[in-house]
Design a protein around this nucleic acid. Structure first.
Lengths: 159, 159
DNA sequence: TACGTATTATTCGCATACATACTATCCGCT
DNA sequence: AGCGGATAGTATGTATGCGAATAATACGTA
């Protein structure tokens, strides 16, 4: 529980600052790692979508949005770029004429191993000098924050 | 240290996903809290700048950028909006004709107490059910991530 | 079957962030 | 004094994300 009486003296004592800054820096780092790995056009933001499709190829946009935790309006632009960069194809879904059927291209599928390796490498660098035990606690804290927000926004259990 | 042999099965086992998602959700939550507190036009992104100015009013843009960890080009737009919304004034600095002197308005100064209270309230909600001990560990992990990135980007010690 | 509602995706406007290129100014050194 | 490099800030283009409004389609129910 956050202690009401804790005074924030410096910026880096504020959890909100820490999470925001870490997020931006981790993204920038990942971007550089990708750039140096010879994968043309792969961006950190593509990862959540690729991840969903690697698990199960061929999904509707709305499914990807829910899986990635992004708004549908955000997915539109994201998929525009992913299509432009050759990672996915977007076709009208056969059963539902409202829906779009998103599928991996060969490039999108083939990039899996390298992307995972790059992610691993990046995480190794980012977590340098931090005991694994603390990394796992931090992950648990973040998961709880996420579920705390979902719980109070009137969302059902994130399905 | 991040274990190389750890396989990421689900998205929420990936620290990068957790930090990004938490960052977005925390920002959205803070935004809602501000909106409900009757402070006209206060946004989460303004906080870092206000924080720096609350500590010491009257700074150059470049100082604010360094303090906040943002690029100068980002500060330009941010200060445009903060000026527009009445939190700061931007005047040419007297000693250095290249520089801009950023100062709090009455509104910018007066919003301090409410903003801190709202931040406190938001953090209480976000950290619901998490032991303080774990929050502090998570904060330490994030600080270390941040310094790890700064350390390898060729930046000096964040001055 | 037809109507009303829900769902799916897109468009638009805005905010936030970066990199790059540019202008203006300052400062050290000759 | 003046030249060259460093510094401060802005402009521009792109990426990423949200919310509100819109269009098209699907579906339950009368």
């Amino acid at each position: 529980m956050w202690p009401r009486d804790r005074k924030l003296r410096k910026l880096d004592e504020c959890p909100y600052y820490l999470v925001s800054r870490a997020s931006l820096l981790m993204t920038a780092t990942l971007k550089k790692t990708f750039a140096g790995a010879g994968i043309r056009g792969l961006r950190p933001s593509y990862l959540v979508v690729l991840w969903c499709l690697w698990q199960r190829d061929g999904q509707k946009m709305i499914q990807l949005a829910r899986c990635a935790g992004l708004e549908p309006s955000t997915m539109t632009g994201l998929l525009d770029r992913m299509e432009r960069d050759g990672f996915v194809t977007r076709e009208p879904a056969p059963q539902d004429r409202r829906a779009m059927h998103i599928q991996l291209t060969d490039k999108g599928l083939g990039v899996h191993d390298t992307a995972m390796r790059m992610m691993d490498e990046t995480l190794s660098m980012l977590f340098m000098g931090i005991p694994l035990e603390e990394i796992d606690i931090a992950a648990r804290v973040l998961r709880r924050i996420i579920s705390n927000v979902r719980g109070t926004t009137g969302e059902s259990t994130g399905r």
